[in-house]
Design a protein around this nucleic acid. Structure first.
Lengths: 238, 238
DNA sequence: CCAAAAGTGTTGCAGTTACACCCATGA
DNA sequence: TCATGGGTGTAACTGCAACACTTTTGG
């Protein structure tokens, strides 16, 4: 900790730049977020926090976020977008760290592969997101009270939930949370999980079909009931 | 330049955090942006650039942006919002600098007070913004070709123009660009300048009046024609 | 034949667009 | 009286919300 107080170029005060990634998935109709456990050291020993880490000298923040996502969640080539930069001088009690926050959308099938442990942090874990109002968002495990996240990560999570809700209305990000083939009911379930409220089935289906964003495939999903047509995106990126 | 390579905490590589502020105003129906001239030293000697500077150890990026705005544009208490963080490793050829970009909206009456010079940089100057398509935005002086900005500031400017256009549609930021009392024609002119295209007078007026965001005052603006009613915002903040 | 989920249309309302003329004033 | 910008209403259209029953399958 003393090293950072050595004499240096005054334009570069002792200050770190980190990325934190809010990784979302939807599983069983529930919005979930990936959290990692902090080591048993100050600050916030053992607390849950968003996966993140310092930006390396030769990489952009975007690169760093993608790297963290690969390391902590084990996923690549997913939707990843910058959220906001958090820079309160005391947001990290040890030293000055500016956090460039990102959010990622991962389909449930990819999410299952991820969540690997490394040496310092224990295995990351998926938490459900509870966000009844616009101003609150909390992570919790079923049957347990919500957890309080380290640093300002509760605020980052809240900001991320607001962002995806707003964005879902006019950008087709819902597709990012599904495998290549999906039923319209599954797509609707994703929308409901993100928005936090039910949507009308007939209106939803007609809107989606009119949008031209999905194409009917010839496969069906079977079950102990009427089979559902499987759809696919007409374009993978937007 | 060597100082930043001294041994130090590895979590804090030699890396600076700066803020750049895209200060907009609307004057004579034209969207304008404030630019400062770089000193005659590398990199980009004498080039025009967005006002900005390094974040100090004890201030947040928000604070730094507000400070830059006060120092370079001479304005305080204006609309100022974070835009995006630019972090390509080579965006500053000298050394690693991450830029947290902001955009500000200043009314033309306040803008006239600002634009002061300091020792290193010459007096900042207002440039018009040309942005016919969504993908291009350039600064220019009347009768002159567009200027190429230093660093990645052309990209930042373009991002800022996209942002205010998108935001204007659903957030009443147009008011930030006007003095406390204004005519509906002036407000319409601000919208047209930001959006870059004309809007229908009758539809605009009925939408604004229905919104409840403005209140008719009892003053009028005179001229060599029929006097126009002056309006005021019903709320100063949103 | 029963349970479970899939699938399907219409109507009313609200918001948006397109559009042209008269009004009040100062010079 | 003329030039200048201020001010006003309506009709067609489009998108969104509300709403309930029939179909297909496996067990």
């Amino acid at each position: 900790m003393t090293a950072i107080h050595t004499a240096r170029d005054p334009r570069f005060p002792a200050l770190g730049v980190a990325v934190d990634v809010v990784v979302f998935t939807v599983r069983d109709g529930q919005l979930e977020v990936l959290l990692t456990r902090r080591p048993d050291e100050e600050p916030f020993p053992g607390a849950w926090s968003l996966p993140g880490g310092f930006v390396r000298p030769d990489e952009s923040a975007d690169d760093a976020a993608a790297r963290e996502l690969a390391e902590k969640a084990g996923v690549e080539d997913v939707f990843l977008e910058q959220l906001y930069t958090f820079s309160a001088p005391d947001r990290d009690p040890r030293s000055r760290v500016v956090a460039v926050a990102y959010y990622a959308l991962v389909s449930a099938d990819k999410a299952a592969l991820g969540a690997r442990a490394d040496g310092r942090t224990r295995a990351p874990q998926w938490f459900r997101v509870q966000a009844e109002s616009e101003e609150h968002a909390q992570a919790f495990l079923p049957g347990q009270p919500p957890v309080t996240l380290a640093f300002d990560h509760d605020e980052i999570l809240r900001t991320a939930v607001q962002r995806i809700r707003g964005k879902l209305e006019y950008v087709p990000i819902g597709f990012q949370l599904l495998p290549p083939h999906f039923t319209l009911t599954e797509l609707q379930s994703v929308y409901e999980a993100v928005l936090g409220h039910p949507v009308d089935k007939r209106n939803f289906r007609s809107k989606i079909q009119k949008s031209g964003l999905v194409r009917e495939s010839d496969a069906v999903k079977k079950g102990p009931h009427r089979p559902a047509k499987l759809f696919e995106f007409t374009q993978r990126t937007f």
